[in-house]
Amino acid sequence: MLFLLLSGVATRLSWLFYYRALRMAPASMVAPIDKLSVVFAIVLAMVFLGEPLTLRLAAGAALGVAGILVLAWPVGT
Rank of each mutant, 00 (worst) to 15 (best):
G67M: 06
V38L: 15
M46W: 08
K35T: 09
P32I: 01
V9Q: 05
L71D: 09
A45V: 04
K35H: 14
G64V: 02
A72W: 01
Y18P: 02
R12P: 00
L4D: 11
G76P: 01
F3H: 09
S37Y: 15
L5G: 15
G76N: 10
A66V: 08
L55H: 10
V65R: 00
L57D: 05
S28T: 15
T77S: 11
V70W: 09
V43H: 00
Y19C: 08
W73Y: 13
A27M: 12
P52Q: 01
P74T: 04
A25H: 06
T77K: 14
V30A: 05
I68L: 06
T77R: 13
L2C: 03
T77A: 12
A41W: 01
L69D: 03
R56H: 12
A45G: 13
F17P: 01
M24T: 11
V38I: 13
A31V: 15
E51Q: 12
V65G: 07
K35L: 09
W73S: 09
A58Y: 03
V70I: 15
E51H: 00
T54E: 01
D34G: 09
M24Q: 14
Y19L: 08
G50C: 03
L69S: 10
G76W: 05
V38M: 15
L36Q: 10
V75H: 11
F40M: 14
L6A: 02
L69V: 13
L53S: 12
L63D: 08
G76C: 02
R20N: 07
P74G: 07
V9P: 05
A45M: 02
I68Q: 04
R12Y: 07
L71K: 04
F17C: 12
L71C: 02
P74L: 02
G8Q: 08
A58Q: 07
L55A: 15
F40N: 05
A21G: 03
G76K: 08
L55S: 11
F3L: 15
S7T: 10
L5S: 11
I68E: 06
F48P: 02
V47C: 02
M1Q: 09
L57I: 09
L22I: 06
R23E: 11
L63F: 13
A66T: 11
T77Q: 14
A27N: 10
V47Q: 07
V47M: 11
F17R: 13
I42H: 00
V70D: 03
R23V: 01
T77D: 14
L71I: 07
R56P: 00
L71P: 07
G64D: 01
A41S: 14
V65H: 05
L13T: 04
S7L: 09
A66G: 03
L49H: 05
K35I: 05
V30Q: 04
L55E: 12
A21Q: 07
L44K: 05
R20Q: 12
M24H: 13
R56C: 04
S14N: 11
G64N: 08
V30S: 00
L36F: 05
A21E: 08
G67K: 03
P52Y: 01
L53W: 06
S7P: 00
L5M: 10
L2Y: 10
L5T: 14
P32C: 01
L44T: 09
G8H: 01
A61Y: 00
A21L: 10
L69R: 14
L57F: 02
Y19S: 05
Y18V: 12
M24F: 08
V70M: 15
R23W: 01
T54I: 13
F17L: 11
M46E: 05
R23Y: 03
P32A: 01
Y19A: 06
F40H: 03
